[in-house]
Design a protein around this nucleic acid. Structure first.
Lengths: 339, 339
DNA sequence: TTGAAAGCGCTAACAT
DNA sequence: ATGTTAGCGCTTTCAA
């Protein structure tokens, strides 16, 4: 047992003031680095702080200053590695600006999302970045329109909420053009349901590009899943493989996890990738380069997406009535061996 | 423009009280569901709340009640899918008990970890669960020993901090015994550096089990990485493959990501898995079952790990001087095709 | 340069 | 059943 610094019960600023023989105002000034305190006094206070093991109660400070310097990031499922780099981007600019970024897993559940928004309403966080599906954002957008938040990746352009994302319509078109340039005309789309805006946009981009190439897609080549699981992709591929003659020669999955499942599914059905079927994914998550064959995929500028989102939010926080634009960032098709 | 509910500037409880023609105490009672308020009064208050668009300021409430009902979970890298299920476990029991769980990415950086601990010190969170490497926990354990936190997966048994994890020594031994039972005697360990306790423990378990089997491992078969990347595993395998005659016939990687890299590395060097080399991983992350060949690995009860950690923390919060035990949960070897 | 004192918005003890 | 009031721990005028 040492008798050095050990916090007793709940030391307050008044205790420190008493100990240092000054007023609480002076202690507060020292704590906040105000310059108008004599060096000698400043030192006395420092001593008292150290000796008492005092820690400022930020709850009290926040109540007074009416800000928490906490930012929330809401993701539908942080088990999805896609979000990792985005969140890192958010985190880094938040930290650079003196904010903490805390992550919330909403499970894409509107109720849970709402409960996190309540942290904003209750002034316990200063702002939020929401990556939830557009559909669940929509449920809140109206009542939450006065709250300081921005949308990332998923957004409703008409909601009046600042957002950042990519041009999914264009990206899907790029994939189709890449595939048709390689001679494919029988191209399947493995999509993940319409709750996500990106699903709708990529479907549209897929369709439009196909139409531009004068290709009429077989209805069975449009598969809508309600999952991003490997298994779901695998089942979709099995289903596609069972088409026999009408089997597609290329498959575009809207996520890498799905694409990896698709590759497995085709392999299981006796088809080789890319020789029998080409497979393209989306996102370029870490494992994409390390499956066999390495996955051709669309890469999003994830870090930048996050940084931009955080930037928009901070701007909105600084000036609540500033015009904050929606921004679209460029994607890139990464060619590997699967297509 | 509608003239319905629209929050004016910062409505306070006093505004609501005035509007309802009652005292702030009564409003507070209604807000907190106290029963000793007449139904008619209660209703007046409800009306006033609705009409004013009032939202309680939880910062103020928290200052008063001295609790935030926020729990923090610190992970070294949430890009690592291993943490997903654990965090979900924590989240679910936190929510069941009326707490919010917020996730912090420390990047295994002691400074960042410390800054999150400051949220505890500043009373902005009630408790924390730390999954950071034992080494970085250690740096804080002493000064943070009075703070309400528990360790999960990584822990220092001698630190006096409640913890939950698995028996890594035993698990590594299980892998070795599984491999030797299959006839392997040349077994490599691909480890991830000694900053992590699990690395040390799995190394020890590996060594001990080998010794028990009367096997003396070739020094070159013990490779220590400082990364969990696919690439790192790939390089390690290439290195092992280059050993020629002295090449191991089996490799045990301490994480699935590493193991997947190892498989790629061996494949790249012309060796087939499992025929030329058997590969075993650790964690059983989602993709493990979906690589080719599917990965044999040690599965941790991740959800339960998280639930247990949250349980320990809540117990400690309810009774700060309760004896909170360290607990070890069972693991399981999942046999697939890679070994 | 320093101190006294008024709140920030809420809860809870004490009165009535 | 309801109101009055004293804080929670801090920051920030305003005075000295």
């Amino acid at each position: 047992m040492s008798d050095t610094v050990r916090p007793r019960e709940e030391v307050s600023i008044a205790d420190v003031a008493e100990r240092a023989g000054v007023s609480v105002a002076t202690v507060s000034r020292v704590l906040n680095g105000h310059t108008n305190v004599r060096e000698a006094t400043r030192e006395k206070v420092r001593q008292a702080v150290a000796a008492s093991g005092y820690r400022i109660n930020e709850l009290a400070r926040n109540l007074r200053t009416a800000e928490s310097r906490l930012l929330l990031t809401m993701v539908p499922d942080f088990g999805n590695p896609f979000y990792a780099a985005i969140v890192r981007g958010i985190d880094s600019v938040a930290r650079q600006n003196g904010y903490f970024m805390l992550l919330c897993d909403t499970g894409a559940d509107p109720l849970r999302e709402r409960s996190y928004f309540d942290l904003l309403r209750g002034r316990r966080a200063d702002g939020a970045i929401c990556l939830d599906p557009a559909a669940v954002q929509k449920a809140l957008a109206e009542e939450a329109s006065t709250l300081p938040w921005v949308a990332c990746c998923e957004f409703d352009p008409s909601a009046g909420v600042p957002y950042v994302g990519i041009d999914n319509h264009l990206a899907a078109g790029d994939v189709v053009r890449y595939l048709t340039a390689k001679g494919h005309r029988k191209i399947a789309l493995i999509n993940s349901g319409q709750g996500y805006l990106y699903g709708q946009q990529r479907l549209a981009g897929f369709r439009d590009a196909l139409a531009d190439a004068g290709i009429e897609p077989h209805p069975a080549w449009l598969v809508e899943l309600d999952s991003l699981d490997y298994d779901a992709g695998e089942r979709a591929a099995a289903q596609l493989a069972a088409l026999g003659e009408a089997r597609p020669t290329a498959a575009f999955a809207v996520s890498d996890t799905l694409a990896i499942g698709v590759m497995n599914g085709f392999r299981g059905a006796g088809y080789a990738v890319p020789d029998d079927v080409a497979v393209v994914g989306f996102d370029d998550i870490a494992v994409a380069a390390h499956v066999d064959p390495p996955l051709t995929t669309v890469s999003q500028p994830m870090q930048l997406l996050g940084e931009t989102a955080a930037g928009l939010l901070l701007k909105r926080l600084r000036d609540p009535r500033a015009e904050v634009p929606g921004v679209l960032l460029p994607h890139r098709l990464i060619q590997r061996r699967s297509a």
